[in-house]
């Protein structure tokens, strides 16, 4: 909410006049990054104004369909129905740009001997019908701690990170009550750094000295993969998703210029600063990809 206020505040501040401002709306996961891009672009291209707000991926896509936004930031793929209604409403097919990757890291305290987890174990840990509540049940003894009880840490229930983990790992089952829900990615990691018996999830870019990231396997027999940028981009790390920006048809020149800048080295240098993984050079598509709409 604070960021929203900040975004609005910055949006209202006087800037040199250019064409109509580029309006970006959508994912709360991406709102920090989008804001950083908008501010940096104001320096790189003082003639073009970019205004950014959050609200959620769905909100951004709805605004794009209504025509009240030029760009929709989304941390999920556009649904075929949404592409269709965009086409019906505007006569243009949506154009998709991959602007980064988000990988969720499973964090534990540095002293925790655990190295890898499976989705099954994460479900048993975090889901409402899960059975694992003690570290000994995972065969782990935390050195230097009197406690065996697992402290579960996560994000507040309405954020994109929360929903992503719930959907991808818990198969849409509810989280167990008593999970500490913090209101920031950094807070999650810092709390784990101070709490030897904690386990939690947060963006993989927030590593601090007191914590370590676990390797993750989707199924018990699979090789557990460490959350590295390479594994994220290639899709081998199982808790990762693409960060997308949607526009419509052939965007106007200012919007095109902005998206080309986002996918340049200058634009991509802001991605790691927000805790995400940049798009590697060979995968960048500065012109985007026009989606096919079935009629």
């Amino acid at each position: 909410m604070f960021l929203w206020v900040l975004g609005v505040g910055l949006g209202c501040s006087p800037r040199p006049a250019g064409g109509p401002p580029i309006l970006g709306k959508g994912s709360d996961t991406m709102v920090n990054l989008a804001q950083a891009w908008a501010e940096a672009y104001a320096v790189a291209q003082p003639g073009v104004q970019v205004e950014v707000s959050g609200g959620g991926s769905g909100v951004g896509i709805a605004a794009l369909i209504r025509g009240s936004a030029d760009l929709a930031n989304s941390s999920r793929d556009l649904k075929p129905a949404e592409a269709k209604s965009a086409h019906t409403a505007t006569g243009m097919a949506p154009r998709e740009y991959i602007v980064g990757y988000d990988a969720l890291g499973i964090y534990v305290h540095r002293d925790n001997p655990l190295e890898a987890v499976t989705f099954e174990q994460l479900r048993e840990l975090f889901a409402v019908d899960g059975r694992i509540t003690k570290w000994s049940e995972l065969g782990v003894r935390i050195p230097g701690s009197r406690h065996d009880e697992i402290v579960r840490v996560g994000r507040q229930s309405s954020g994109g990170t929360f929903e992503f983990l719930r959907h991808r790992v818990l198969n849409d089952r509810d989280f167990r009550l008593g999970t500490l829900e913090l209101n920031g990615s950094k807070e999650v990691v810092e709390l784990i750094a101070n709490t030897p018996t904690a386990i939690g999830y947060s963006g993989m870019g927030f590593v601090v000295p007191g914590v370590k990231l676990l390797r993750v396997a989707e199924r018990a027999g699979d090789e557990a993969v460490a959350p590295t940028p390479e594994a994220t981009v290639s899709g081998r790390y199982p808790i990762a998703r693409t960060l997308l920006v949607y526009a419509l048809g052939e965007p106007r020149p200012e919007v095109r210029g902005y998206l080309e800048w986002i996918l340049s080295d200058a634009g991509q240098s802001w991605v790691p600063a927000s805790g995400f993984v940049p798009v590697p050079m060979e995968r960048r598509q500065p012109a985007g990809r026009l989606l096919e709409v079935d009629r």
Binding site: M1, W4, G56, Q156, L177, G178, E181
Partner: peptide, 25 residues
């Protein structure tokens, strides 16, 4: 953390904190 505390050292969540954390979204 939504919780019925059984000791002084349990995490809890208050009405106010809940509104602050969730209303924005």
């Amino acid at each position: 953390a939504v919780n019925l505390p059984t000791s002084l050292l349990d995490p809890v969540r208050t009405l106010t904190a809940n509104i602050a954390a969730e209303l924005g979204e």
